[in-house]
Each structure stands twice: as C-alpha cells, then as structure tokens.
C-alpha cells in the first residue's frame, strides 16, 4: 500500500496538532443537523456494546441473569475482576508484554538498519530488497500458518514465547521498513554527506543522525507493530498450547470456555485486557492514531 505517511510528519511537527479544515468565520454555515444526528447514532452503535460489557462485568453472576442488562447494577461487585486476576491473568499479561516488547524492539531495530540501507545504499542488491519488502505487503499471513507450524514444531520451538516473537518480526518487517524508508528519504542529503566527509561509518550515522531524526517515525511504527502483536490471535492459537505460554487474546478465549456460565467473569477479563491499550490511547492519542494509519495516510 502507499507508504506515504511520512511526507507529512515534518509539517506535523512544525505545526502543533493536526491541521483541520479551517473555515474562516465569515463563511460559517448553519450547523448540519443531519450529520450531527448520524454522528450520534454511530456513537450509540460504538458505545452501547462497550457500555454493556463494562456494566455487566460489575454484576454478580446471579445479577447478570435476572436484571435489565442496560441498567447499571446497584450492588457493584469487583469479584469478577478478582477471579480473573486469580486465574493467572498476571502471567498472561506478562507474556503479552514480553512478546510485544521483544518483537517490536527487534523489528524496529532491524527495520531501521534496512531502511537506512535501502535509502542511502546504492547498487542492485538494496534496490531489489525494497521490491521484496513491497511484495511482502500483499502476502496474507493466514496462508503461511501451516508451513510455519511445520517449521516451528521441527525446530522444537513449539509452545515457546520465541515461537510467537520470531514470525511476528518476520511479518512486521516489510511495512516497518517501508514506512521508515519513506521517512528517511526526507532527511536532507547534505546531513549524510557531511557526516561521511567527517569519516563517520554506517553505524555512527545510524546512531547519531538517523536515530534522533527518525524518532517520530519510530514511535509511529512501534505503536503500529505493537498493537498488532499485542492483539494477535492466530500465531498464539497455532504455535502455543500450555497455560504458562498463554498471551492475553488466547487467555480471553480460554476464560470463555473455563468460566462457561460466568459471563460477567469473561467480560471482566475483556475489560482488563483492554486497559493497557486504553491507557496508551489516553496518554498518546495522537501518536496512536498516527501509528494506526501508518503507511496508509495520504
């Protein structure tokens, strides 16, 4: 896909905040009632399910089966959350953190190197590298799971966290390289040339020039990659098995079969598993939003 996010990065940095369509005051038109109405209808579509999940997670099990599902419970209970926390949630959470942090760190590091090579290198090798990564964007992950399962079982990596990290890196690399490469093309040539003239090698240029200048782009891709690894379901489903290797999306799935009729308990797990991303959203909404559309913005 068009990996053009970064052309705008700079201008965004100069102007604080996104620059929305600004209409001069004199031309202000009457409020668009129809649009507003539609906006609130969609809000209901989005919020109602979330509201249902949150208030249901605060009900007692008996309360869940007997009351109006849209009225908040009068006797709020946190027992469901306690139950989830006592059912190994901490471990699953930690597993998710471990795989997300290691996959993202590795992806970003090697992609930064590759993007630098692609942008600043010359010769046929780096040029074809770029096309190979472009091709990578069109490969559906799902189509590779069976050979991947074969490789992982034959190398005795099955049911380990490494089995989740390694393919995640492989699939995150193409888009990450493309986004970073696009950003790096905007770094003025003179900066590289002058460092070269000072006798700096690739590593020093990467460390002292590219790394600091590419910070915004790195944050963006890290969020994009991180969200995918954190929420990923397919790899854990086919490449892990035991409880001590379980990550959050899998944990939700197993809670669902373990708790069976304890729906409030399952929903409490859903809420708990979403809290970290929600916190990230509250703290760095702009980065997150930019990360989500990384590579597809125009």
């Amino acid at each position: 896909m068009a990996v053009t996010v970064t052309a705008g990065e700079r201008s965004v940095r100069q102007r604080p905040g996104p620059a929305p369509v600004r209409r001069s005051r004199g031309l202000r038109r009457p409020p668009n009632v129809l649009a507003g109405l539609g906006g609130f209808v969609w809000l209901a579509v989005i919020i109602l399910p979330i509201y249902f999940v949150v208030i249901s997670s605060l009900r007692s099990q008996a309360g869940f089966f007997s009351t109006n599902p849209l009225v908040p419970p009068t006797d709020i209970t946190f027992d469901n959350y306690l139950l989830v926390l006592q059912s190994g949630f901490g471990l699953y959470f930690l597993n998710s953190v471990i795989i997300t942090v290691s996959a993202v760190a590795a992806t970003v590091a090697i992609s930064l190197m590759a993007a630098y090579a692609v942008v600043r290198g010359n010769g046929r090798f780096v040029r074809s590298t770029f096309s190979v990564f472009l091709l990578g964007l069109a490969i559906p992950t799902h189509a590779t799971i069976i050979p991947l399962y074969y490789m992982i079982t034959r190398t005795h990596l099955y049911d380990s966290l490494a089995a989740l990290v390694l393919p995640s890196i492989g699939f995150a690399v193409p888009i990450t390289v493309l986004i970073l490469a696009n950003f790096m093309r905007d770094i003025p040539n003179e900066l590289f040339e002058s460092m070269r003239l000072d006798g700096a090698g690739d590593w020093r240029i990467l460390w002292n020039l590219v790394l600091p200048l590419a910070r915004p782009a790195l944050v963006t891709v890290a969020i994009y990659d991180g969200l995918h690894v954190w929420n990923g379901f397919l790899f854990p489903l086919i490449l892990t098995q035991s409880a001590d290797k379980r990550v959050l999306p899998m944990a939700l799935w197993t809670f669902q079969s373990e708790f069976t009729v304890n729906v409030p308990g399952v929903l409490a797990a859903v809420v708990l598993s979403t809290l970290p991303m929600l916190a990230a959203y509250v703290l760095g909404r702009r980065h997150l939003v930019r990360g989500l559309t990384a590579g597809f913005g125009k």
């Binding site: 630098y116 090579a117 290198g121 590298t129 390694l166």
Partner: peptide, 26 residues
C-alpha cells in the same frame, strides 16, 4: 558513498525465513 547493503540483511533474513519460505512451503 552508499550505505552497506549488509545492513538490510537481518530484516531481509527474518522476512524470507518467516514469510517467504512458509509461502513456498504452502
């Protein structure tokens, strides 16, 4: 003076081993 193409090797290796090879494997 261009950057070394070797810098692209780790990323390329991951992509080839975990995406392209499985694709051919399928």
């Amino acid at each position: 003076k261009g950057a070394s193409g070797l810098l692209a090797v780790p990323a390329l290796a991951f992509f080839v081993v975990f995406a392209l090879v499985p694709l051919a494997g399928a």
